[in-house]
Every structure is written in C-alpha cells, then in structure tokens.
Design a protein around this nucleic acid. Structure first.
Lengths: 315, 315
DNA sequence: GTAAAGTATGAAACGCATTTCAGCGCAAGC
DNA sequence: GCTTGCGCTGAAATGCGTTTCATACTTTAC
C-alpha cells in the first residue's frame, strides 16, 4: 500500500516510468514494465484517485442537480444520464435540491471547486444569469428550452406538447378543458396559459390546478374538480402519476373516465399504459442520454427532443 | 484565481495562516484574518477541492450502488439517503449497476481509490465475501439482513414481512396463494418459499411468478395467472408497482379484484393508496436515512426496520 | 555515411491545501 | 522572580500522480 515512488524504488526505475506503465503509455521496455507491474503487485498498490484528480485537473465526474430523486420523472432522466455515463466511464454526483436555491448553488459550487467536470441541471430554481456565471468553470446542460451561448440545453417543446394535447381534445369535441401546473408562477405555467388561450380563448382561472407533482396531488385535484359546479369535461395533467391519481380518484368518487371527464397525461410512463390512459410521450430516458453527451462535449448545443401523443382510452 | 500561496504572498502571511483563516481555525489575529480575506477576495480565490481531498485523505462523499435509479423502490431509498446526506453536508456518488457484477466492483473500487469515504449497497449481486474484502477501505452498509462483523446492514425482515402478508390472507380464508419473486435464484426467493411452506405446506411451483420488478411485469404476470386452470385466489406481489400492473390487468381481463383474486403488494407506495390496494408498508425512505447514518458512523451495526400491513380493499 | 526519426528513461516541476512541530511573546499563578 | 500556559505564526513535511523537458541510444532514410 505504498505510493508510486515506493514502486519506483522497488522496481529500480523512476516514478515517471511507473506512471507510464500504470497508464498504458508507450515507450517502456518490456523488462521495466514487468518489474513495475511486479513491484505494484508486491506492494498491493492502489492509486489515490484524488492525487490523479489534482494532477490532471479533472475528475471524470458529472454533477446532476434534481429536485427529487424519487420522482419518476426525474428518476427516468437520471436513468438515461446514468446509462450514458456508464458507457463513457464517467461517475455521477447527484444533488437533491427539493427546489431550494441554496442547494442548487451548493451543487454549482462543485463545478467551481473542480469536484465535477460538468453539470446537468434537470430543473432549475435560481436565476439563469447566476447559472451562466458558473459556465466559466465547466460545461452546464439545462433540461429546459433556452438559447444561451454558454449553456447547453435539451428539452421537449412544452408549449407544443401541451398544445397537441389540447388540440387532440378539441378534435374530440371537448369544450371545457382544465389543466394542472406544478406551480402557478412557474415558467411552464405561462406557456401553457398562452397555448390554452390561443386555442380556446379566455381561460377560467379556477380550471387551472396548482401543485401537481405526485399521485396524491392527483387525488387531491380530483376532489377539487369534483366539487366544482362547472366541471371541465377534460383535464390535461402535468404527468402520468398525477393523472393516475386523478383518474383513479374520479372513478372512486363515482365518475366515469372518459364518460364524465377525459384525461390526458404526460410522459407515457408505464402507469399510463396499465391504466389505458391517453398521454403525451416524452422521451425522458433519451433526454437524459443526450444531456450527458452534451455535458461532455466541447461545444454548447441546444437540442429539442420530440414528443408524441399516445392515444388510449381515457379520452 | 490563484492558490493559497498567492494569497499568502499578497496578504503578507504564511500559507498556514491562510489555511487557518479559510477553515475557521482559532489563533489568528484580526488584522491577519482581514488581510487574508481581503487578498482571497482580490484574487477571486477558489479552493481546489481535489487538493483538499488529497491532503485530508477523505472526500466527504458516499457512494451508492443501486441496480436502477428510476425504479421507485430504489428511488425512495435513494431519496432517504440523499436527505440524510444533505443534512450532514455529504455528497453522493451514484452507480447504476443493472445488477451487473462488473459495475458493482467498479463502484466498490471507488472506496479503494479513496474517491468515497463509504459505500451503501442497496442491492447486491456479487459474493458477500468479496464485499467484505473491501471493508478495510471504508465503511460499507448493505440493505439486506446479515450479521458480518465488518459490514453494517439495515433491512426489513423479508421473511416476516412476507409471512405477515400470507397470514393475513390465511385469516381471510384464502387457501390458494401464489406469489412473485424478482428472481427464482434470488436470496429472498428462498426465504419466501420457506415462509410459504411453513404456513401452507407444499408449494405448487407454477404459483410462483418470476421476474417481478415493474408495472409491465405485473401486467405480464396477470396474463400468466389468467391462463392457469388452477388459478390462485390470492397473490402476494413483490412491490406495489408490480401489484398495480397485476391488479389493473386482471380487471382489464374481466376479473374482479378482490372477487376473483386478492392482491397484497409491498412498499405502501402512493400508487397502492390510489388503487385502494392492501400492502405491506416498508419504510424505505427511513431505511435510506438509517443507511446513511450507519455509513458515516465509526462502528458497524445491524438494524431492522419495522414493516406494517396496511389493510385496504384488494383482499 | 550522415541526418532524421523513433525508442526509452529520469529529474524536476506542477497541481494545492493541511497539519505537525517549533518557537516567540505575553500574561496569569505561586 | 520564575514557571506554566495560552495566543499567534510560519517553515517544512505530507498527501501523490502527471507531465514536460532534456538526454542518450537506436534505427531508418537517402
């Protein structure tokens, strides 16, 4: 358990030669190579990766910022990132932020401190300008639509995806459509409202349901929906989990889906298949893989991934 | 963007003093402290964390091995680990193994290379003896029942949890009970069989369904169940997602749950609540938190976390 | 036969912060 | 008046691998 110098001494060579052997560099004679390997073996040598990181100035590690690791939306993106990282021999450092700015900043500091070579931000809370300030320390990829020179991005066109769900419902003669958002003040909230008004004119604000992230949220929102006197006859719902909660609670309350209310989810998570639910498929695994390719690329890029409406039986 | 020596020069002090100031150590005069802080500011100094890691010999980072990051079972454990890590100021390095031994070994090597201070293995594929060999390099926590001197563990008593589900069904007069396992050759498979035979005597081997991990698996298994001439009248299913797939597919095929077949899941994931499904609650978030506490503890320990049957309407 | 190109090797510099040890000055204790 | 101890400070050692540069010896190439 010595270091590279101990090996050098034992093998009768220089530390340089040891390093060359250990890293598979050329220009080492067979005898010296054998001697080094033998000495390393004898000393039960283990590289200290921190010394390598220090010397090389990089860590072959990518940081991933995500609000919740246990939510399937982020879990699936992370799965894609992890699969791509494994192929490229990169390690992954994850930071769960719970949407707290402080955690996000702490994560971005990893880039500054050279703990990670690059950063993937699956969902952002702090100002984009702040993120941009960190781009001098390493590549940053965001999973949202933007076109900044120093930040890469990979995203689904939320506006169009939402609009395609609405258009589909319009075709099906649905006139009173409600929808859910994660947060009223969120970015996607604005684009959704815009898409809605473009297709249906004025929006009744109480047809927009807030805080839609989990199955329980879906359950809750179903209750809210049920208590309305002017119930929407269709709902476009943030993701398949919320949609599942909504759909199941509606049925439990004695309503028929799609008889009384149609449901369109997002993601095409397997839960939507099991529930025979119409949804807009988002290739989240692929999005994660692309994000990883971008973060190790030397150039910034902006990539849109396609969505696709999957028609099933909830409309 | 210089280093600690540049600061020392600019502030007219030694590198030692700079280090003391930067790390909040006592015994530095106010003037020197101010001078150092000022110089650091002027130089826009950023610590190189890799040098710190090298010097200190530790990284305040814990490695987490898990087969799939996007599966809710592991996602929930990871969420618990992440929450605890955040509180303690630790970082998390994750390795997704897909149950491949090679990936597991690569992850364990992080411990040897001093890339992580400790390791949490949420699910293991390689021999326990091999894992034990790595324990000399840092603390390792496994999420399975075992009592090795150099490995910590946190676990649910799978045998008892499974048995409690079976007992519950027995009380409800169910006589023909099938169940699912992740893999026929798996560890839990053996303890399940034992529990089963203890309560019901001989087991019909075609009442055990293999490869039960995802919703789709549940869907598939429902098809297999439906095609049997001697259908079990109750199923105990690996986790709530598989159970959800099973339950929904049974209903789609025209069977009644619990009329034609009862279902008991595991985990008490919110999906089971939405489906009004009876399940055995496993405190996975808490299990993750405990695993983290164990991995940063200086002593090995073995902790069992309680399970609890949650009675709903699928039996 | 000589210049050019390739092979092989090591000394030393580089990346950077932490920590131990030694020492000096001043104040409290007896 | 002398010892003990605390406050403050810095030199040097420590952790460790990579990479550049200089050098010397072989081969090819013409």
């Amino acid at each position: 358990m010595g270091n590279i110098h101990d090996i050098a001494r034992l093998a009768g060579v220089s530390a340089t030669t040891v390093s060359r052997v250990l890293n598979g560099h050329p220009y080492v004679s067979d005898e010296k190579r054998a001697a080094v390997l033998n000495a390393a073996d004898q000393l039960r040598y283990e590289k200290n990766i921190n010394a390598v990181h220090l010397a090389r100035g990089k860590t072959e590690t990518i940081g991933v910022i995500l609000p919740f690791v246990s939510h399937p939306y982020f879990g699936t993106i992370l799965g894609g990132i992890a699969a791509a990282a494994e192929k490229s021999g990169y390690k992954l450092m994850i930071v769960q932020t719970n949407y707290h700015t402080a955690q996000e900043i702490e994560a971005m500091d990893m880039l500054k401190l050279k703990q990670v070579d690059g950063l993937i931000i699956t969902s952002r809370e702090c100002p984009i300008e702040l993120v941009e300030d960190y781009s001098e320390y390493g590549r940053i990829v965001l999973c949202e639509a933007l076109s900044r020179d120093f930040l890469s991005s990979v995203f689904v066109n939320q506006y169009e995806a939402f609009k395609s769900a609405l258009s589909f419902l319009k075709e099906k003669e649905k006139k009173n459509i409600g929808y859910t958002v994660l947060r009223m003040e969120g970015k996607s909230s604005i684009s959704r409202k815009k898409a809605y008004e473009e297709l249906f004119g004025e929006l009744r604000s109480h047809w927009v349901f807030d805080q839609a992230l989990t199955i329980e949220d879906g359950t809750r929102i179903a209750g809210e929906w049920a208590s309305l006197t002017d119930q929407p006859d269709a709902m476009v719902i943030t993701n398949d989990f919320v949609a599942a909660g909504f759909l199941l609670e509606c049925r439990r309350l004695g309503f028929s889906v799609p008889g009384d209310v149609s449901v369109v989810g997002f993601d095409n998570h397997s839960i939507s298949g099991a529930l025979n639910m119409t949804t807009v498929e988002l290739p989240l695994q692929q999005l994660g893989e692309i994000a990883f390719e971008q973060v190790i690329s030397s150039e910034t890029s902006h990539k849109e991934v396609p969505f696709q409406l999957v028609e099933r039986g909830s409309v």
